[in-house]
Design a protein around this nucleic acid. Structure first.
Lengths: 343, 343
DNA sequence: TTCTCTACTGTGAACGCTCACAGAAGCATG
DNA sequence: CATGCTTCTGTGAGCGTTCACAGTAGAGAA
């Protein structure tokens, strides 16, 4: 027979209390709360004072009930959650989005949908209107969740270029191809010619574009493209390690290695060390992302910086615009080559 | 003049629609939705069928408005956000809590309160009743946010033992002292006698307990405690590196090192490598946490495993119990020594 | 039969807010 | 002096639920 809840929260003041306190009507308080148009300065001030005195905070549920908006947005990750654990990029993105939204006083709901069941549950939750929009992180292509949400008309911004269907979907991405070009040019400038690549998954635009940049620069420079020097991974550390082992077996004369993510590059360093290759003396290694994995690695990784702070800010901006009725849009942000010890 | 929203979401069915479809009243549908007590099997079935046909999903705002519950809970991090970026433990905890709550169909709101302003904003948000309870991660002691929330009567569960005021607050923690004892015994068993320690911050119980365990075992074993062998850090990689340098300067004959977090241990490895000490030949190194930082490190770290999956599950369990009216409780979970290459 | 009890069902009110509307006041224009 | 326009204010309705209460039907007991 548990009595009152610990601490006993008492009833918070309502808009009615504020109105009485300020000597105005509910309508006036509501108007002040929503931008203050058509409110006299006198009333404006009286209401603000009353709000301060009473400690009033708007009840978002009551508001949402009538506006139909929830004033909250979801951060959806449709990846197996090990990747979330492992990849420092997600942290940065998540925290960046949380902060960008906090500036608009919008809470962020974290949604992890690794399994089929979770995906179904979460899709239903979203399409029921419990969030006004979704920030989607999914390196996978042809993500069924993205498709469903788009069909349901849910405002959506993806991180990274989505596969297929072009203009209809908002996304923010770094310039993968250009970043890859910079890195390969850098490796060439060091005199390396047998440059290997561990690419990302080739069913994702990011994976494809980085590989394309690599091939483009080599061709330009008159270096023959050797398919034995190219393998693909899934951005995990383990796949970087395995891929590098395969490369070493197929092309022992490899003198440089461009790895499509820092995490995979960490794996590559492990494989190279085990094979007795010195980095950067025997093999120069370049990563991609400039995540914390790059500085943690020994030696510290030369890498292509993706501007995650700007990416998250842009994702939020685009999503809010879309919720406000604007059309979907795409933003491509420039990358930057960061030189460290591994090249 | 933007016309209808992209895709055009149409109005979702209400409980009324379901009632009409099922040929019963709103009340009956509501009862089915909330556990199905006092509902005939016939009605039960009719309602469920109607729900399926209409695709009805309960409007949480309307429900919250009347129940006073929000059916959502907050994950609050009152740390500077760099720590969130860097420390893999947070990921694991966050993702574990999200999943544990998903099983109860409760969304999790991510709240990052690194600065004073953010803390104020978020405290107001929470005390206004926008979440039913809070999972708090704060290694800092005497956290003002924790204090305020407790005073406001907000159900709260902390990760890690809080400083001071004992029984009144719920928390879940690993057995720090016991874990430290295991590690130091292990180092002693390797024949090491000059065992250094980089402890955590000494204004946190976790930091204090791990140090206590260290001293306890040494004393038991008849090894004299040398204060030159002890420094403290703040769990960041950088502080582990700096601390280890200090130790090496003060006690060059150190033959083992117990570091109170894996992240700091990574820093320690860097410092040792720079000083030309081989690990584990010259110096055995032990970490704490068994985060992904432990396996990433070279050599892979021997460490004390904190059962983060169980910690997050227990935090959620305790919080839900507390929201249900139960008293705050504490849970201490056992740790486990994980031997790898560094010892 | 009549009463009581249990199992079930329907209904109005309320939660706290916003929105549409009506109306008041002030000022310029015809 | 009426008319219109603009700026401001108050009021009732209603958003989609749950909750308390009243009411019905059927079973069993007196």
């Amino acid at each position: 027979m548990t009595m009152s809840n610990t601490g006993g929260r008492r009833k918070p003041p309502t808009i009615h209390d504020v109105a009485r306190e300020a000597g105005v009507s509910r309508g006036t308080v509501s108007r002040v709360l929503n931008g203050g148009h058509y409110v006299s300065p006198t009333a404006q001030e009286a209401v603000n004072a009353a709000i301060r005195r009473t400690g009033y905070v708007v009840n978002r549920h009551a508001r949402s009930l009538i506006t139909g908006r929830s004033d909250s947005i979801g951060f959806l990750l449709t990846e197996p959650q090990e990747r979330f654990f492992e990849d420092p990029n997600f942290n940065v993105l998540l925290s960046g989005c949380t902060q960008a939204l906090a500036a608009h006083d919008i809470p962020l709901l974290l949604m992890l949908a690794g399994t089929r069941d979770e995906r179904r549950r979460i899709t239903r939750y979203i399409t029921a209107g419990h969030v006004d929009g979704v920030l989607l992180v999914s390196s996978h292509s042809g993500d069924p969740v993205a498709e469903e949400l788009r069909e349901a008309g849910v405002p959506l911004v993806q991180c990274g270029k989505p596969m297929g269907l072009g203009a209809k979907v908002s996304y923010v991405a770094a310039d993968d191809r250009d970043g890859a070009r910079d890195m390969v040019r850098h490796l060439l400038s060091l005199g390396r010619r047998r440059i290997g690549m561990v690419s990302g998954p080739l069913d994702t635009p990011g994976g494809v574009d980085r590989l394309a940049g690599y091939k483009e620069v080599l061709t330009e420079a008159g270096v023959e493209i050797d398919e034995r020097l190219v393998v693909s991974g899934d951005y995990s550390r383990a796949s970087g390690e395995a891929g590098t082992e395969r490369l070493l077996a197929r092309a022992p004369d490899m003198d440089a290695l461009f790895v499509a993510s820092d995490l995979m590059a960490q794996g590559a360093l492990t494989a190279l060390r085990r094979a007795g290759r010195r980095v950067p003396e025997d093999v120069s290694v370049g990563g991609f992302d400039d995540s914390s994995a790059a500085t943690e690695a020994t030696p510290a990784l030369t890498t292509v910086r993706q501007p995650y702070d700007r990416i998250s800010a842009e994702m939020v901006r685009l999503l809010l615009a879309q919720i406000g009725g604007e059309d979907p849009a795409a933003v491509i942000l420039p990358t930057e080559l960061v030189k460290r010890e591994s090249t």
